[in-house]
């Protein structure tokens, strides 16, 4: 989820908790069940958890059904400017470009084998698009583990024309000689350009 979606999510949860507390407070005072002297931190914590339990599914339901209109894309992109028109692209899990790729879960990979994923790159700009992917060396955790991995980015032949989308496969190979690495994390940066890579 994007930042704005998280903000909406947490504001719904917070609203549920606060409004629940206020309503409960007013109701219990009116019914003389809990006066101000009866409020304890335990009771408040219990109510916060209870109303939070209501708020979280409410926010989840909202995030599933709320129509955000245009897709917000925050894929790292760089390139050259052509006649004032920059390359623009999005990376998605589906051909209809509705589920943006924000995280790749490689899962378990056997030593000496590989894992592959398929993503869709949509050219959202007015010029042809070539994309290349790199990992950020400093992003590797554990540091230096990148020497045991190889990433293959199969972009295919030719550019992606404006308004079109291409299925691209990304594979990650784990070296047979890998040692002391059980899990890993790294960041992939995708660079878009209107000029073919040299």
């Amino acid at each position: 989820m994007q930042l704005i979606q998280w903000l909406r999510f947490f504001s719904i949860v917070l609203t549920a908790i606060i409004s629940g507390l206020v309503v409960f407070m007013a109701w219990s005072r009116r019914r003389h069940i809990y006066g101000p002297q009866d409020w304890s931190w335990g009771l408040i914590a219990f109510l916060i958890i209870m109303f939070g339990v209501v708020g979280v599914p409410l926010a989840m339901y909202d995030s599933v059904t709320y129509d955000w209109g245009e897709q917000i894309v925050s894929v790292p992109a760089s390139g050259l400017v052509l006649s004032g028109e920059a390359v623009s692209f999005g990376i998605y899990w589906d051909v209809t470009a509705t589920n943006a790729v924000t995280h790749i879960e490689w899962g378990e990979i056997e030593v000496g084998s590989s894992a592959s994923i398929e993503i869709w790159i949509k050219n959202e700009g007015p010029v042809d698009l070539y994309c290349q992917a790199f990992w950020i060396e400093d992003s590797w955790d554990p540091p230096g583990a990148d020497v045991f991995f190889t990433m293959i980015w199969d972009f295919g032949e030719g550019p992606i024309k404006p308004g079109r989308a291409r299925r691209v496969s990304v594979s990650l190979f784990v070296d047979q000689d890998i040692t002391d690495v059980t899990d890993f994390y790294f960041t992939i940066e995708v660079h878009g350009d209107y000029i073919p890579p040299s």
Binding site: T98, K161, G163, R164, A165, R167
Partner: peptide
């Protein structure tokens, strides 16, 4: 009033958004 995304995928080549 809901937005529908549409794509056409040819037998070969890139999809049309």
């Amino acid at each position: 009033g809901k937005t529908v995304s549409i794509a056409v995928t040819p037998p070969v080549g890139d999809a049309y958004s």
